[in-house]
Design a protein around this nucleic acid. Structure first.
Lengths: 332, 332
DNA sequence: GTGAAAGCGCTAACAA
DNA sequence: TTGTTAGCGCTTTCAC
């Protein structure tokens, strides 16, 4: 049952109204090919008059090139992905492309289904998080004609384009920093590592670095589920209950770390003398807390921006390392 | 210059490979109409064999009904909109719809251009924030055949569907709460009100309520630009420099309020005895700070979910008030 | 500078 | 149950 009157002005009607052929209207509208100024005006007047809205579905079918860019992302709760979308969308909009997205909830099977659904729209490119995909997903991505961009990771082999930074390096750098600062009894509070494989890579490299230095990770507390400020706070509470003498804690990201920070504030645990806190992401909020958070700033928005630029420019396959920056706050 | 081999298996090729007609393949694939089990198997085998991916562009053109839902949102930095998208996307994905979005950056002219671009995809629905649109946008929305959903506001007249809550009521309730608690010298710290019209409506009703009670707003500090924790902190600092004897401050949202909260923590201003803080949005982080933030919790995710459900169900035009909830934290 | 006509890949009658 | 066929609204040769 329809509640609105379906107005379907077509290019043919515009042509008729303007007294020109369809192809002329098409040329004028796309500003492509040649036509006289007079014709142009007649066409534009008819367009205006009839309220014509071009049909990109038909246009795409006839010409190929959908100008649709598909994002298949793990989450929208984790600020990382809205940031990536934000960076990309500005570039896409400037270049008359549109962003389509769907959310996998960190489930590889769901990712496969969603990639298949996206491919049905014949997008210019598909953007995904990281390199961990099912065999089925990889097969589709390799078979498809569209560009593939894997985001926010560098530790793996790309299908086509990759834009991001090394999570393993981030983990290593974090560990080295804490060690250099003299921390020795270091713990970890994180979230679901199997699903968030990038957090898993950071954690793996972090532990390995500590171990090589002779000060292996003292203990860890893993929250099953998504990262959040609350689970960071609870995680630290539990970890400290078991290991009261930790001198530093590495968190899977800034949300978790802020939770830990709040726990310390509430319990009167002094930072960093009693306990140091280190995060990951470099969220703005961490710069404004009474003590700025020590963390790693990641180029989330630029990851999106650069990915979109490569796609719009149809750049050759390549891997772009945007790096990251260690921010020495007051919590270490 | 193409870097990938464009594989374009069509339905016709599948039909040929399976030794059946095109419409049979179409029926099997959409599980619509009748066909024998044997035919089905033959078709599915050919699909598998050839790695056929249906072309929804062609499908949509042939059948109408794009199953595309367009979101034209002001921002992705303001967590409100990722939350709305999150609520909507789960419903849309379950119902084989896809979400397309673009970001207006709170610019009505840009919104108009983006709506026009979206309409070219003949979406099932267009979702926008609030009721403030240009004449051109309204004209397009009224003329189009697709559903229109205006989100997160109730104070205005909808084009078609509206899902959200009253911002004016939220502002009023906030003021009444502070007054009831005995606060009398009340200030405001907010962000760009002309662009964020919903924040403007809250502020307007807030001031009016204070004024009617005989305790008009003492002062305000407006940050030109987007809301953020940092501008909340700076805003409060400036406001207090002018008005050291305020007893409460209302913030345009929780991000701003958290900034104010951090300012107080850093300066040793005791909350709420010296200064009360009240926010808006009910972000999770506000529940986990050492003192939970007093605020108004808004149904952001359900706004997205309900909007998507209405669209999928093709419900008749209506206005849905999802309400909001005052959270009495420890900052008032 | 302009128009006629042939598709793009699919769906939806309509026959068979 | 299945195949044939006529579009969907546009772009793109190719004539003129």
């Amino acid at each position: 049952m329809d509640f609105k009157h379906q107005t379907t002005v077509t290019l043919a009607e515009v042509a008729a109204a303007a007294g020109v052929g369809e192809s002329t209207v098409s040329r004028v509208l796309r500003n492509h090919g040649s036509f006289s100024k007079k014709t142009r005006d007649r066409v534009m007047e008819a367009v205006e008059q009839l309220g014509y809205v071009p049909n990109r579905i038909a246009g795409t079918l006839a010409s190929a090139g959908s100008r649709l860019v598909a994002f298949v992302i793990p989450s929208l709760s984790n600020i990382v992905f809205p940031d990536v979308l934000r960076g990309a969308s500005s570039v896409l909009e400037e270049n008359q492309h549109q962003a389509v997205f769907s959310v996998t909830d960190y489930d590889p099977e769901r990712e496969e289904a969603l990639v298949a659904a996206m491919l049905a729209w014949r997008p210019t490119a598909v953007m995904l998080a990281g390199f961990e995909h099912t065999q089925g997903t990889l097969k589709m991505l390799r078979a498809t004609g569209c560009r593939v961009v894997e985001l926010l990771d560098l530790d793996g082999s790309p299908v086509d384009l990759a834009v991001g930074f090394s999570n393993a390096a981030a983990g290593r750098v974090s560990a080295e920093f804490l060690l250099k600062r003299g921390y020795r009894r270091i713990g970890y509070v994180g979230h679901d590592l199997e699903r968030d494989t990038r957090a898993g890579k950071r954690f793996g490299a972090f532990c390995e670095t500590l171990g090589s230095a002779g000060f292996p990770l003292a203990d860890r507390e893993i929250h099953v589920g998504a990262s959040s400020v609350e689970s960071g706070r609870l995680g630290l509470e539990r970890l400290l209950a078991r290991q009261p003498d930790l001198d530093a804690v590495y968190f899977s990201n800034d949300d978790m770390a802020l939770g830990g920070y709040f726990h310390c504030l509430a319990r009167g645990i002094s930072i960093p003398s009693q306990l140091a806190i280190f995060g990951y992401n470099g969220l703005d909020i961490g710069r404004v807390t009474p003590q700025p958070l020590s963390t790693i700033r990641t180029p989330r928005v630029s990851t999106g921006r650069v990915a979109a630029e490569l796609v719009v420019a149809n750049a050759p396959p390549q891997v772009i390392d945007l790096g990251f920056e260690l921010i020495e706050g007051a919590t270490t």
